[in-house]
Design a protein around this nucleic acid. Sequence first.
DNA 1: CCCACGTGTTTACGACGTAAACACAGCTCC
DNA 2: GGAGCTGTGTTTACGTCGTAAACACGTGGG
Lengths: 254, 254
Amino acid sequence: MVDDAQDPDTPEARGGAAATIPTAPPGAGRRPLDRRQVLGAAISFIDEHGIDALTMRRLGGHLGVEGMALYRHVRSREGLLDGVVETVVDELYGDPDVFLEPRHGWQDYLQRLAHGVRRIALAHPAVFPLVATRPPAAPWVRPPLRSLRWVESFLDALTGSGFSDEAAVAAYRAYTGFLLGHLLLEVSARGVPISSHDEESDAAPPPPGALDGYPHVRRLEPLLSEDESAAEFEEALEELLERLERILRESRRG
Amino acid sequence: MVDDAQDPDTPEARGGAAATIPTAPPGAGRRPLDRRQVLGAAISFIDEHGIDALTMRRLGGHLGVEGMALYRHVRSREGLLDGVVETVVDELYGDPDVFLEPRHGWQDYLQRLAHGVRRIALAHPAVFPLVATRPPAAPWVRPPLRSLRWVESFLDALTGSGFSDEAAVAAYRAYTGFLLGHLLLEVSARGVPISSHDEESDAAPPPPGALDGYPHVRRLEPLLSEDESAAEFEEALEELLERLERILRESRRG
DNA sequence: CCCACGTGTTTACGACGTAAACACAGCTCC
DNA sequence: GGAGCTGTGTTTACGTCGTAAACACGTGGG
């Protein structure tokens, strides 16, 4: 157990967009709201209070404005959430460690992309389930890479590295499945404020006797409670890359 | 491409619980509602109309009862959804192809369990995102295996097959991540009625010109649109089992 | 017989999403 | 400068939601 190997994807916003004026510009005359501010405020509101707590009136209040004013900038609450998802995913473009094209081979490209997405998930743990579960625009635009441009980038990187079309598509499927599963579990394990009321202590041990019929769980509870998510992610990612390498070799022979 | 290899997890309910009286017992005197009926009705309602369409009053109407009557059987709407998730996950117990203990080795055990969970996801595509994203009872009860009993079963199966404690826990993490990612993508790709309004045709081709800046996506669109989910699931599952086998070997040497 | 209990109903309240009408700023064009 | 236009925030209003509280009523045990 390497114990404390410093998670590299910790939220020290590498290019985040979720910085907004909290309640009202304390200074002078209120500049008119715009869509970016609304979406940014929604993101930080969700990060702070959870999605269930987000209402149009409350978000308006957060921006020093009546709730109805938001409808000048988003079509509806659903449209607001769509914009939130899009904005969060677009933070990838601002990440200096993620490239749209493979600069040091496709493995490096996929590594960087994966960590970029993980950084986003950890920076916005309460938003990520939205990214994961909102219906995609087309059935082949799979979360969490919910943008045509990234799908294009992905396919370009792999086919440009020798993957056949079929292999690139298979890789795309495997890669998105990997990202979604691991990151969703990671943010759901973290204490996401799911509904306005926070839990009491940080990580309460199970009440004594609750695990009575479950000897393995009881014995392994400390192990199970360890946060190995960074190492686990890295290992599963490397395993996936090896699998893709195998696919690439077969794809080349075929 | 094996084309049409008949998906084995297709929803021909192997032990489902979601069978309930649709609107009202057409026959005689109305027996008093009970919790099972309420949860069953909620499940089929969600399957049919999506979660957003589920309101207490509508579900009541579906059962021939005023909305408030439901509160005799569930604490709140949230409690209702918790019950829905629990009920759906408990369908695993009714699946004759899934065993709580490994009868033919741990690989067979994991294969059966995975397909059992997949069958549930496909039988209740609109419920599965709830299974995936509802906050778990403890951080180490990971979706979609959201029950102490299955975690215990899992750990028992693996440690009983030679996995060390650490290896079993690592396997648990990898396995849940795999299931969650693949199944969530699969149900989200299927046309889940996310909000009351259904789309027009079954699978509309993208409007011409929409893919103009994305040559790879445009060229691979037919490939991307193919539903390879069954084969993809099987392949990723087998890959995972091989990885676990490697973990087991290392675990035995260590 | 009656009464307590369990179940469904009625009524009521505050919050929500959002349509529609309104007020008012700043701008352009004369 | 004034007239109108346009784009933004406000006010009012409506129907629906979750749910608390009081109520009605059938049934089974004393």
